Simulated scan of single mutants.
Amino acid sequence: MTTIPPTGNTSGTSNADANDKTKNSTLNYNDFLKLMVAQLRNQDPLNPTDSTQYMSQIAQFSSVEQGINTNAKLDQLLVNSNISQASTMIGLSLTSADGSVSGIVTSVRIDSTGSTAILNNGKEVRIDQGVVLGYQ
Rank of each mutant, 00 (worst) to 15 (best):
N42S: 14
D20E: 09
S107T: 11
G8P: 00
V108R: 02
Q76T: 10
N28W: 02
S93C: 07
A117K: 00
S14A: 01
Q66A: 15
Q60P: 01
S14Q: 02
T113M: 05
S14I: 00
Q57F: 11
K23I: 10
V64H: 08
N24Y: 10
N28F: 08
M89E: 12
R126M: 05
L27I: 12
A18S: 10
F61W: 09
S100W: 01
D44V: 07
G91R: 04
A97H: 08
V37F: 12
V125P: 05
N9Q: 11
Q43L: 06
G99T: 08
S62M: 02
L40I: 14
N15R: 09
F61V: 06
K34Y: 07
S102F: 01
K23H: 06
S115W: 00
T3V: 11
Q76N: 08
E65F: 03
A38I: 01
Y29F: 14
G114S: 04
T88A: 15
P5T: 01
I127E: 00
T113Q: 12
T113A: 14
S107D: 11
L119I: 05
S100P: 03
T106F: 00
M36K: 13
Y54R: 11
G99S: 09
D98T: 12
L77F: 08
A38R: 10
T116F: 00
D17G: 00
N24P: 07
F61M: 11
S62P: 04
S102I: 03
T95L: 01
V108K: 02
V131W: 00
L40T: 12
Q60K: 15
D50F: 06
N15P: 02
Q66E: 12
A38Y: 01
I118L: 15
R126Y: 06
Q76F: 00
A59C: 05
G134S: 12
I104Y: 02
T3H: 10
A72W: 01
L74S: 14
K123C: 00
N69H: 03
Q85D: 13
N47D: 10
M1N: 07
D128L: 05
N19I: 08
A59N: 15
M36W: 08
L119Q: 09
L33T: 07
I118H: 06
D98P: 04
A16S: 09
K23T: 14
D50Y: 11
I110E: 04
T95G: 07
Q53S: 14
V37E: 14
M89Q: 15
N80Y: 03
N121D: 13
S102K: 12
L35S: 08
K23C: 02
G130E: 04
N42F: 04
